[in-house]
């Protein structure tokens, strides 16, 4: 088999449609939480004077205006409404790409006032490509090349984030970055009470920089790992991000959702459904059902059809 066909086989390796369906639910639910709670600076830019507006290349090409209160309200609620409708799984392309346009524009508003958050670019890939799968039901276990491609693209973007951020450290910080006081600077500027002790033990933050650089440079190895070790690698990255959040209250939220594309989400969803069902059945058997509720055994016609 040629390298080209092996690469194509890897890029389009079929996965269950249900996995894409679960990831979409998580992505669209995240969008709602994100615009309402997590990343609200775009909304406040509607109240900032246009003198602070600094168009990005995207804004210059598309002639995007400075933020106004009306614009940020439309984008914010456009995201929420479109994502809420997209959660239903209906019209996946129309609603999915509507969410993509609203969310990307809302991020543009947030980033075109002099500060770009560097953790949100890969999520654009997820919003743009997950709709290409078309209809995908939560219980559809048929394997699909379109689903496999969308998930592979999301995985590639998520891992590129690590590898290219290591490259950026070398480009902007030089090879001496690993021996610099960059993490000391981060903790001094925005460290939590749980992290301040690290300043008194400077080798901890120093060695952490070496570990981080090594982990980011070798992140693409995840594609060579077995299923079991791949899940462990994802778990290790989640531990890293949890530690970062505990130390300096920075979390790369959209990226964390992207990393879920490595996991067998449809199996987790099945387990969750089974546990919920058995919990409800136990509650019903123990007589804790709400007044007026009937059990399947006592309800006329139960089990028919």
């Amino acid at each position: 088999m040629s390298i080209g066909s092996r690469l194509a086989g890897w890029l389009f390796e079929p996965v269950p449609l249900a996995r894409v369906a679960v990831l979409r639910v998580l992505v669209f639910a995240f969008v709602i939480v994100d615009v309402l709670l997590l990343h609200t600076s775009g909304w406040y830019h509607g109240h900032a004077d246009p003198v602070w507006y600094e168009p990005l290349v995207m804004g210059e090409v598309l002639h995007l205006p400075p933020a106004s209160v009306l614009l940020v309200e439309v984008l914010k609620w456009g995201c929420v409404v479109a994502a809420a409708l997209a959660l239903s799984g209906r019209a996946p392309r129309l609603l999915g790409w509507t969410v993509a346009v609203c969310w990307v524009w809302y991020q543009y508003v947030a980033f075109s006032y002099g500060k770009v958050d560097h953790d949100r670019a890969d999520f654009v890939v997820a919003l743009a490509l997950l709709p290409t799968v078309g209809l995908a039901h939560l219980s559809d276990r048929r394997r699909s090349e379109a689903a496999g491609f969308a998930l592979r693209a999301v995985q590639l973007a998520a891992i590129a984030t690590y590898f290219l951020s290591a490259w950026a450290k070398i480009r902007f910080g030089g090879f001496e970055w690993v021996n610099s006081a960059t993490m000391v600077r981060a903790v001094v500027r925005r460290g939590t009470p749980w992290a301040e002790w690290l300043l008194d033990v400077p080798w901890t933050l120093h060695s952490f920089q070496w570990v981080l650089m090594a982990a980011e440079l070798t992140a693409p190895v995840i594609f060579l790992l077995s299923e079991r070790w791949r899940r462990r690698a994802v778990g290790a990255w989640f531990v890293f991000h949890a530690m970062t959040y505990a130390a300096i209250t920075i979390a790369f939220w959209p990226h964390l959702v992207m990393m879920l594309a490595f996991l067998p989400l449809e199996e987790y969803a099945d387990r969750l459904r089974a546990r919920t069902r058995s919990f409800v059945q136990r509650r019903v058997r123990s007589g804790a059902a709400p007044p007026g509720a009937s059990t399947p055994a006592s309800r006329p016609g139960a089990g028919v059809g």
């Binding site: 290349v57 995207m58 560097h118 902007f172 030089g174």
Partner: peptide, 13 residues
């Protein structure tokens, strides 16, 4: 952006 460098904490202090 979104094709900007991923430069979080990339400068040397």
């Amino acid at each position: 952006w979104p094709f900007s460098p991923w430069r979080m904490f990339s400068t040397s202090q």
